[in-house]
Write a protein that binds this DNA or RNA. Sequence first.
DNA 1: CCGGTCTGTCTAGATAACTAGACATTTGTG
DNA 2: CACAAATGTCTAGTTATCTAGACAGACCGG
Lengths: 243, 243
Amino acid sequence: MSEIERGRGVALWSQIGDILADDILKGRLPQGQMLPSAQELATRFDVNRHTVRRAMATLEQRNLVRTEQGRGTFVQEQALDYPISRRTRFNQNMRNLNVDTDTEILEDARELPPTQVAEALGLGRNEYVYRIETMSRADGHIVDHSTAYFPAARFPGLPAIYRRTQSVTQTLNEFGITDYVRKHTRVSARLPDAHTARLMKQPANRPILHVQSINADPRGMPVQYGITRFSGDWVQLVLMAGD
Amino acid sequence: MSEIERGRGVALWSQIGDILADDILKGRLPQGQMLPSAQELATRFDVNRHTVRRAMATLEQRNLVRTEQGRGTFVQEQALDYPISRRTRFNQNMRNLNVDTDTEILEDARELPPTQVAEALGLGRNEYVYRIETMSRADGHIVDHSTAYFPAARFPGLPAIYRRTQSVTQTLNEFGITDYVRKHTRVSARLPDAHTARLMKQPANRPILHVQSINADPRGMPVQYGITRFSGDWVQLVLMAGD
DNA sequence: CCGGTCTGTCTAGATAACTAGACATTTGTG
DNA sequence: CACAAATGTCTAGTTATCTAGACAGACCGG
């Protein structure tokens, strides 16, 4: 059973609210079902009934439950308020991360000074980069949110081509790069920043898979640096041996 | 700039700590760089200096910053890159990184019916497996908590050997397996279960890297199925192209 | 070595979060 | 109707969090 912790910097009512919200959103508490009574939950979490009530208030606010005096509190049935996590598997070869997805371009590509990405792309101080932000869906569910950087000097006019082709492979191909390889990939588990959480419509306390990658041309020259943030609930990266 | 919010159920020091931790982990504050002074941060977040100090204390606890009296607070340099390739060996990885490893066997290996792992190891219903639970430290910090399964019929008496050698590579070697390769690796971001969180001494809301792997002998026969839970703060998986 | 700028450590008080208990109101059931 | 079980609403007191201020100790540059 889930536990709560005192003095951790998160109010008890907030922790209890999160646990119950999670139970509801993950489907462990079916729609329409009556929750345990406030007194019962207070006993279970070893907390005062008022604290439970405060948690309930937030759930009611979020339209996750509905309370009826004298009867009880019930899981609010809802069609499409929050995406219920159905836990799909999204198997994709690491090398093909950027292709074959239903992508939406969030921001028109901009030319920027290469601050932190300079090193990754092997660029000097005053060489500019293009940045492209995208978001991909599968089955209508948001799967990832990516930021890709390209050296602007080497690929003049890249954004227009990318907008037309919607594919990294295609775009690079038009610049004569018929092959490129994943130079390396860094994977870490993180909590999303506020911006990403909002974009991906997921709570700030649900982890994401944060993938940094560098693609290089056959001569080993980096051609793309990217950051992809996968929904931790929806995605499992599958790393195949060999390929 | 990131904002904090009062009365949201999360203590101000906790929110400030999260923001700064994020800045550090995402690289917006470069390693070794001095943070703004406590007074400066207090002004920026519109909060008392003591509140900032409390946030700093948690960052120091997590070893993300280092404070030096009279000088300032600095981003602690670290990043334990963990290379994963077809030939991944934990002990060797760590030796290459020049850190003090220390693996502790949590549970004496047991012979178990192969419930969920049967398929992964290509076993039938009534073939037993050994399970070994370990926890590894590097430089005194908990790095991972692993569960490894081996087919018992093929490796009789394996636990004793493992206990002596403390190394998967060595142990398999004594059974005549001089080489093995990573057949596949699954990586996902998760919140730790209660047991893992307690073992790894990390809060339940800090994500971990959950890695499932299968190692196979040169003929492709699975010899080990493992689940490794890496501390998200300390470990970055680095996937190498090629090998 | 002196003054400015940091962190470290106290004390005291204000505000938010939590507890404890009492009692009212609504609902379903025997 | 009487009763049990639920939510709703008070009051009062405790604990955690945050604020305010003062001062000590370490560091650095002039």
